[in-house]
Structure formats: C-alpha cells, structure tokens
Design a protein around this nucleic acid. Sequence first.
DNA 1: TTTGGCTACTTAATCGTTTAAGCATATTTT
DNA 2: AAAATATGCTTAAACGATTAAGTAGCCAAA
Lengths: 343, 343
Amino acid sequence: MKKKVSLKDIAKAAGVSTALVSYVLTNKEKEARVGKEIAGKIREIARKLNYQPNHIARSLKSGRSYTIGLVVADISNPFFANIARTIEDEAKRNNYTVIFGSSDENADKSWDLINVLLNRQVDGLIMTPTEGSEQQIKQLKERNMPFVLIDRYFPGIPTNNISINNFESAYHAVTHLAKKGRQRIGMIMYKTALHHINERKRGYLEALRDHKLPEKHNLLKLARYSNIREDVHKAIDELRSGRKPADAIFFATNSLALEGLKYMNQLGIRIPEEMAIVSFDEAEAFDLFYSPVTYVQQPILDMGKESVRVLLEQINDPKKAVDHLFIDTKLVVRKSCGSRQKN
Amino acid sequence: MKKKVSLKDIAKAAGVSTALVSYVLTNKEKEARVGKEIAGKIREIARKLNYQPNHIARSLKSGRSYTIGLVVADISNPFFANIARTIEDEAKRNNYTVIFGSSDENADKSWDLINVLLNRQVDGLIMTPTEGSEQQIKQLKERNMPFVLIDRYFPGIPTNNISINNFESAYHAVTHLAKKGRQRIGMIMYKTALHHINERKRGYLEALRDHKLPEKHNLLKLARYSNIREDVHKAIDELRSGRKPADAIFFATNSLALEGLKYMNQLGIRIPEEMAIVSFDEAEAFDLFYSPVTYVQQPILDMGKESVRVLLEQINDPKKAVDHLFIDTKLVVRKSCGSRQKN
DNA sequence: TTTGGCTACTTAATCGTTTAAGCATATTTT
DNA sequence: AAAATATGCTTAAACGATTAAGTAGCCAAA
C-alpha cells in the first residue's frame, strides 16, 4: 500500500495544526470555532489528497472499535448464514463492521473465538451460544461486555436475547399434524440440554396431550449432533417399526429433517401418504422435495435486525436493562402433511 | 467492560518500565537482554492480572491489523458460506481475523464494501469480484493492496487468483451427458460478462462439437441474476418446446439448477427419463431430490485454504509475483443423468 | 485604562504498544 | 590500568487521531 494520507499531511499542506484539521473533518467547527475560510481550505485539501481516516487510531483514542463480534454455531448452515447476512447489513447501516466465526456447536471453540474477538476489542458480541457455554456467558456478564444471544438462551441467566416462541411454534406445528388426522406423531430432536430445543419438545408433548394423542416415549427420538446421520436413521427405523408405526414426524431442526428426508427417500417412504412431515426452520431443499415440506419459518430478518439494535443500545447505554424479545414464527403449509382432515 | 489491564499496570506492579514488560511478553528477552528473574516475575504478574494485549494499539504501531477483508457475492449462498467458513478457519490458524460483507453481485455495493474494509485497515482482501468491477480491481492494484480473487477473475488483469478449471469442468460434465446418450443437450447460464461463467459456456460448446451434437443457439439459454425465476422458467419452457425438445440440461450454477428443478417438479417432468440434469456447484437439495443430481463439485476447502495462503504470502512479501491457481473439480455422478449409454 | 469576553487558532497530553537509543554498572580483554 | 564489551535496565519517540487547556489578538464594556 502507498503511504496513507494522515491528518498531519493535511495540516502541513494547509499550514495549520492537526487539531484544527481534526475539528473540521469531524464536523466540530462550531464548538471549536474554526474560521470559515480555513475550514473550507482544509476540506478542499482533504478531498484532493483523498484523505481516509485511520480507524485504528480513532479506535485507540475512543476505546471503541465500531466492530461487532459474531459467533454462530455454523456459518455453513443457511439458517445462520442468513442471520449473519442480515446482521452484517444492519451493522453496516450503523457504521459497524462484523467479525465472525463458527463455534461448530463446540463450547471450547466458542470460548476460543470469544477471546479472539475480545482481544480484537469488539464493542459487543452477538452469539448463538452452544451447549455447556453457561460459564462463558456468565463471565461476559461479569466483565460487563455488551452482548446479545440469538436463537438460543439460558433461562437461568438474564441476558439480552432474541428468540422465537419455541413452545408455541412447536405446539402449533404439531396441532397442524393432529388436525390433519395424524394419530401417531413422532418427533426427532437433538439430544441436548439447550433450552430452545427442549421448549420445542414441550410444545410437542403439550399438543399431543391437548389433542388426546398418545405421547409414548418411543415416539420421541433423540439424535446426537455429532452422529446425526446414524441416529436419525435409527430413529426413523424405530418409528416405523412395531404394531403401530408413526404416521407423522415433527423434526426439531432443518438439519434433522434433511437427514430424515434423505433416508426416507432411500427407503421409498411416500410423503405424505405414509408419513406426514413438519420441520422447524427453512431449507432450500424443502421446496425442491417432491412433496414440499411444511415448516416453521423463523423471522430471520427481524431477528438479525433486532439483535443489532439491542446490542447497539446496550453498547451506548451499558446500564440499560436486559431485553428479552420473543418473535413469532409462521407455519408455512405445503404438501408434506397431506390433506386429510380429522374426522 | 471493566478497565482492561495494560502494560503500564504490569509495569507498575513489577516496578519496572513498560518497555521491559513489552520485551518479555513479546518474547524478545534475548535481543533485549532481560534478566531471567525479572522476566519470570513479569510473566507471573501478567498471568495473574490476566493481561490481554490490545490489538488496536499494536496495530497502530505496526501498521498491520492482522485482519483480512472478505467480500463474497452472497453469504447466504451455501457455496460462499462454505468458502467463508474455510477462510475464517484458515485465517484463525494464522492469527488473522476476518471481516466480511456481501456484495449481492452489485458492483456499487462491492466498491462500498471494499472502502469500508480499507478504512478498517485490513491487511489484505479476498474477494469474489462482481461483474463490472474491473476498475475496482485495478485501483486496488495501483494502491498495492494485497488481494486474492477467488472463484472468478478478469483475464485481462493479472491478479492473484484461485479458481477452478471452468472450461474443462464444463466440458467433462457435458461429455458425461453425451456418453449417456443424450442428443439435445441444453445449457442454462447467467447473462453475464463474468469470465468464469463464459468459460463454462465454452466448455459446453466444445463438448457438443467434439461429440458431434447440435449446438444450435436455441439450446443455450440465458437468465438474468435479477430475474432468475422468470428467466429460468422461460428457458425451460423454450427448451421443451419445438419439434425436438432438449433431453438434457446443463446448469451453470446451483442457483440456476435449483430454480430449474423446482419448476420441472411443478411441470411434472420426470428426471432423468424425460430430462437429464447436471449442475455446477453443490447444494443440499441435490441430495434430497428424488433423482439425486449429478454435479460438478468444487474443492471449496482447498480454494479457501489456498486463498488465505496466497494472500498471506503477498502480504508478507509485497514484491511477490502474482499467483494463478487452477484447482481441479470432480464430477459427482448420481442418478439425474440416467443409465442409458451411448449406443 | 483595565477588565472581560470574543475569535481563531496552537500546544500538548492521551489511548497502549513497540523499539531504537541511552545510561549505568559489571565484567572481560589488551 | 585503561579500554572494550556485556548486562540489565530506562527514556522517549512513534503510530494517527482526539480534545482539554492554553494563548494571542481584537473589541467592547466598566
């Protein structure tokens, strides 16, 4: 890079001190009572030399980096990629930039990343916390680091968070299956302590109860994140076995649904005739499936926007009380639940 | 945030100057001839106070930010999201962080982003340049900004770039269709001046020629990025009309294929019986499709890694000659081309 | 004529780190 | 014994921007 133009260069060219240049270029002429003529001259020279302020120097002085750290579970999952995208857009609109990283649902990696970001002096963090990261969150709180949790949160720890109504959304999705006349509705979810997933389970169970459907344990299947393929295959095999096989499956996330659908395709299970499907989250593949998949659509755009808004509020007013937003989802009804109605 | 611990705090606690502390903590004891005892003491205190160096101050001094700017066309496209992911991983391994943004295939937005990143004093850029951004690239060159182009490049402008053999890959994919006995192979690509897409076209045309297949103009269809849905629908309608409809389609990108497949699903076109399909790039949905899609797999991991490697080389040695890597792709054969062989 | 108050600037400290140069004291070499 | 070298530290400038405090000149009010 060619040597950058600094305030000093402009000052020299204009025959004034750097202070004056700074006042003019940060529009503090009024307060600093800078002469009209010289202000114009300074601006002119700055333009001519194509002056670009050095953000790093500015940050050092101000103690603010105008940078947000973003830690998502997995940037290659379109759900998180889209969140990242809206966050980046919204941040840019507020003159912030975003540094990001993927934690891969791994608490150690998450802690690593957080520390890298803190060392980079980010002004705040937006995170989708992983299982077992409670201590990390508590430490951030103790250090008074502004941050916002998105998608997930820990019910025992008061934090800023932006999430959806997991319970209601799941309840609604399962109710939809019940109304379509499905009698034995299974669910496949991650084996996890993460609260948002367990809320989905609670919604599932309560919906079954309210519609007087069996909620036997063997209809609720768990898959390990690290072993998703095998566990989902096994879950589906089990759901289809026995005297009364399941006639519907509610998937707790898009990744689970994708594995499940792939496998059911392989097995030649007809959807929705043999098995009705509802999934949480979106996926490009849901559209393309021969029987487009009914899913719970999360308001990603709003979530991204709100997370930036709440974070910036917190940054600008560290004493602000924490904010807990629940945003509504939308059940997008397609063909995967069939059209038979409850008799 | 609690006030951060600085060198000064450690110096005070140890009763020495900040210089000494700096020497010790940056492992320059040897050159600076620091006493063994005091070095140990300094380290001990630093550990106790949980000292974390201030990257911003360090950057200001060194003129390097240890930050890479990443400009992708669209972070919500899994292809770019995966590239972003590997770049982030690789950068972290080299103690760099990544600031990113999406250009949305829009040259103005791209220019905006580049400037934001330059103001943030990134040490280098990795970009997937958009159509019409030649001047931006030239300017970066003139300013001696280290950068690497990935996925795309401009043949007239010598730059570091990491790309694939677009011509050969397309040639290979179309040859595969020909070998499966397809006679009228269409192609749907973006209407763009971007070289990599046009190389795919060249590969398509040459393969047709070499296999003595018709390469009539009406088998090659263009879609506008901004109007992808309508244009792809129209293209498919046209390819299916006439006396001799196409019996195969080669899609130049995953986004085009996804639109195309959705539409063909709607129309009830059987794949591969009525229409064989090959697409460039991967997509989760390709797996899930009832007739899993044959595609040209790009070595995303390698591309991400190599781009970081080349960029860091350039950063560390600005006089280094530009590097132009072509990485091989792999044709992943699935069911979407059927099994009939050329007779 | 002194005091006060403007106006239009400059000076200098500061943010946290790095690093060349300086300065005692001690040890070795000639 | 004088000169040279080594050791172990400190001083201070620098990176580029911000901003409180200072100053000099001028005009008006007391």
